[in-house]
Design a protein around this nucleic acid. Structure first.
Lengths: 149, 149
DNA sequence: AAAGTAAATGATAATCATTTTCTTTTACTT
DNA sequence: AAGTAAAAGAAAATGATTATCATTTACTTT
């Protein structure tokens, strides 16, 4: 499931892009920190550890490119920066995010559970859904348990 | 259903805020342009027509205040600015947005349709949902009909 | 394997939405 | 009508992101 450097290389090449050391380093980081929804600056800080010379503009540029190629996707929370994640199964609808209002954690939910709604939107409103972005705000399990004590 | 100036006045007063001419003008505009998901700059341009002296910072400040008071809410699309709307029924979960990828229109969907999912998130993951943000991307009815022709 | 070329990078400046600061004005209280 | 804290206006500051441009590099062609 997890794509390796060679795969990334062929994805880039087949679209006419070059596989640079910077791009490899970036993809490695994003893949490693899969569960953490890192923002651009955070990715920049991480990637510098393995490729110290990299510039911030390169990070921005390539995250955009990776998203265009379907390798990563981003979410917008309320903190005013883009947070990126590896796209686990290209073509599938985006997964949902649970944002805990207490601890700030962002939890991924792989299950879609929106088919019924999307069918309804088509039949009742004539709107064909191609993708969605869903965020739930509330209290995560950990924080709910702490509150009881 | 539609709150008038007097209501807004008492909402502001009861929370210790003053009812200024600028705030009235702002609320009028946001109420008038209910369907339009205006961004801050657009609201600024509109409000200047009825209150020419208003400053942009005042618009930003008050939109923030109105949101805190539950009078308006905002969405974040991909254009990098906040878009505001009057909150029709305070306390209720936010409504969903259908974003047409062809014409860019944003359509409101008042029906919630997420109860089943939210129950599942609680029972299976222990996550208590307080609110949600849901955007569907796709093709609206109008654009779908045009395509056929 | 060396040369050629377009793409990619790094550094820095520019941009754009939003926030902050600070002085002046105004809404509401006494 | 006077007093006061909140609000407004103007402008500077901030922070994320994008654009510019000279230099470097990945990959192609010889």
């Amino acid at each position: 499931m997890v794509a390796n450097t060679i795969e990334f290389g062929s994805i880039l090449h087949s679209s006419g892009y070059k596989l640079t050391a910077q791009r490899q380093a970036l993809l490695e980081i994003i893949q490693d920190k899969k569960e953490q929804h890192l923002c651009t600056e955070e990715i920049f800080d991480e990637v510098r550890k393995i490729y110290p010379g990299i510039g911030l503009a390169t990070v921005y540029r390539n995250l955009q490119l990776f998203e265009k190629l379907g390798l990563v996707h981003h979410i917008l929370l309320e903190d005013g920066c883009m947070r990126f994640q590896i796209m686990d199964s290209p073509g599938k609808h985006r997964h949902h995010h649970l944002v805990c209002e207490v601890c700030g954690d962002v939890i991924d939910v792989e299950e879609d559970m929106l088919e019924t709604i999307e069918k309804k939107l088509l039949s009742e409103m004539g709107f064909t859904v191609k993708d969605h972005k869903v965020q739930f705000f509330g209290i995560c399990k950990k924080c709910a348990e702490k509150e009881i004590k």
